[in-house]
Amino acid sequence: MTAPAMKQANSAAKTKQRVSNEQRRQVLDLRRRHSLREVAEITALPLGTVKTLVSRSGAFRDNEQHHALFTLPPISASTETLPSVPELPPQEVVTGDKEVDAVLWLRSIISTGQVALIERAMEGTKKIRTPLDVLEKRYRDYLVATNPGHPFAAMSSFGFADLDALATRAIERHRLRLEGDARFGDALLADTEAESFCIAALRGLEPTGHLGDFDKGQVAARFNAQPELLPHTLTDCLYELGYWDQLYRLRHAVDRDARGDSAGLVRVRPAGADPAPRQGRGAGGVPLPGRQPARRHGRVRGNSLQPDRVISPINYPRATAHNQRQRRQRYT
Rank of each mutant, 00 (worst) to 15 (best):
T2A: 05
A5Q: 08
R18A: 05
V19P: 00
D29R: 07
R31M: 00
R32V: 04
H34I: 01
V39P: 02
E41G: 01
L45T: 02
T52S: 08
T52V: 07
R56V: 13
F60H: 04
D62H: 06
E64Y: 04
L72H: 05
S76M: 13
T79G: 00
T81S: 10
P86H: 05
L88P: 00
Q91G: 01
E92Y: 06
T95H: 01
G96L: 03
D97G: 01
D97L: 02
L106E: 00
L106N: 04
I109K: 08
S111C: 12
G113L: 07
G113V: 07
L117V: 03
M122Q: 13
M122D: 10
G124R: 07
K126V: 02
P131L: 05
D133E: 11
V134H: 08
L135Y: 08
Y142E: 06
P151N: 02
A153S: 04
G159D: 00
T168G: 11
T168L: 14
I171R: 15
L176C: 13
E179N: 09
F184K: 13
G185D: 11
D186K: 13
A187T: 06
E195K: 01
F197S: 02
G212K: 03
G212Y: 04
D213E: 14
D213H: 08
Q218E: 10
A225G: 09
Q226N: 07
E228R: 07
L230M: 15
L241K: 14
L247H: 13
R249H: 14
R249M: 13
R251C: 06
G260Q: 13
G260Y: 11
A263I: 13
V266D: 10
R269M: 15
G282K: 00
G284L: 11
R291E: 15
R295I: 12
R295V: 12
R295C: 09
H297F: 14
G298R: 09
R301E: 14
N303P: 09
R309V: 10
I311Q: 05
Y316S: 12
Y316Q: 15
P317D: 09
H322E: 10
T332M: 15
